[in-house]
């Protein structure tokens, strides 16, 4: 069950580029990354594409297929009509290096800006046993494969390059949430999230959750709970009254 599929692939670098048309053989059971590899092997040996595991676990082959952010290795060809022209483009939010490869170092910069896990200073190794219910909560966030599709899709930086400085993006706000929800973490993550990582920029339109290949509920389980913690501290009338009445700081 093979057919000749029509493809438009973005070729170029930071000095310019355009969509180029190709016709490539498609076989049953293949994914888009198979087609890109066949294209490299048969027609465009210099086509640049970043990939590694081909199993949806390394997060390398993030791109946009028919305008939708996704992993090339997890997008099955069977979801398209045989007559359809499939467009493959690099992630829009990050600077282009060449063809389908982008420079994702913005993400590593943001990762470094998050202070690491801060357990109590007087806690000896092995002294604390973490319970399963406490582990499970942040375990969801640790499924992240750092494909940066959520970062790429988030309109806060996708449509507004100028926000990159102030906004760390859903992946790293989720990292802050993971630390904040850890029973032993003593750092003040709430003010950090709001002031240093731009939580207020998020308008919870949930595109990060929509594109996550690991199906992490980024918005519902990380971003909104962080916004609620900010509300606890700054906007809750009952907490405010309690603080006033009982002279809590």
């Amino acid at each position: 069950m093979s057919y000749q599929g029509k493809f438009r692939v973005w070729r170029g670098d930071d000095s310019g580029g355009a969509l180029e048309d190709f016709t490539v053989e498609v076989n049953e059971g293949e994914v888009v990354l198979d087609i890109i590899h066949r294209l490299q092997a048969t027609q465009a040996p210099d086509l640049a594409v970043r990939w590694n595991c081909k199993a949806g676990k390394c997060g390398s082959c993030s791109a946009e297929i028919n305008g939708r952010p996704g992993l090339l290795c997890m997008t099955r060809m069977s979801i398209f009509e045989e007559s359809e022209t499939i467009t493959v483009t690099p992630m829009r939010t990050f600077p282009i290096i060449r063809d389908l490869v982008t420079d994702v170092s913005y993400n590593y910069t943001k990762a470094r800006e998050i202070p690491s896990f801060a357990p109590p200073k007087d806690l000896a190794p092995g002294e604390y046993r973490m319970q399963q219910v406490d582990v499970e909560r942040s375990q969801e966030f640790r499924k992240c494969i750092e494909c940066f599709l959520c970062q790429n899709t988030c309109h806060v930086i996708r449509d507004h390059e100028e926000n990159k400085e102030a906004f760390s993006g859903p992946r790293f706000l989720m990292r802050v949430a993971e630390l904040e929800m850890h029973p032993l973490d003593t750092a003040d993550r709430v003010d950090q999230a709001q002031d240093d990582h731009g939580l207020g920029y998020c308008n919870i339109t949930k595109c990060c959750s929509e594109v996550c290949p690991e199906h992490i509920h980024i918005t519902d389980n990380a971003l909104i709970p962080m916004k609620e913690r900010v509300a606890d501290r700054k906007y809750d009338p009952i907490v405010w009254l309690g603080n006033k009445l009982f002279k809590r700081s």
Partner: peptide
């Protein structure tokens, strides 16, 4: 803001819910 995922919004500037009124 945005109309759908990976569809560019038509606004030049975006500050989200960081300032009044949002």
């Amino acid at each position: 803001s945005p109309p759908a995922c990976a569809v560019a919004e038509p606004h030049d500037k975006y500050t989200g819910e960081t300032r009044f009124p949002l």
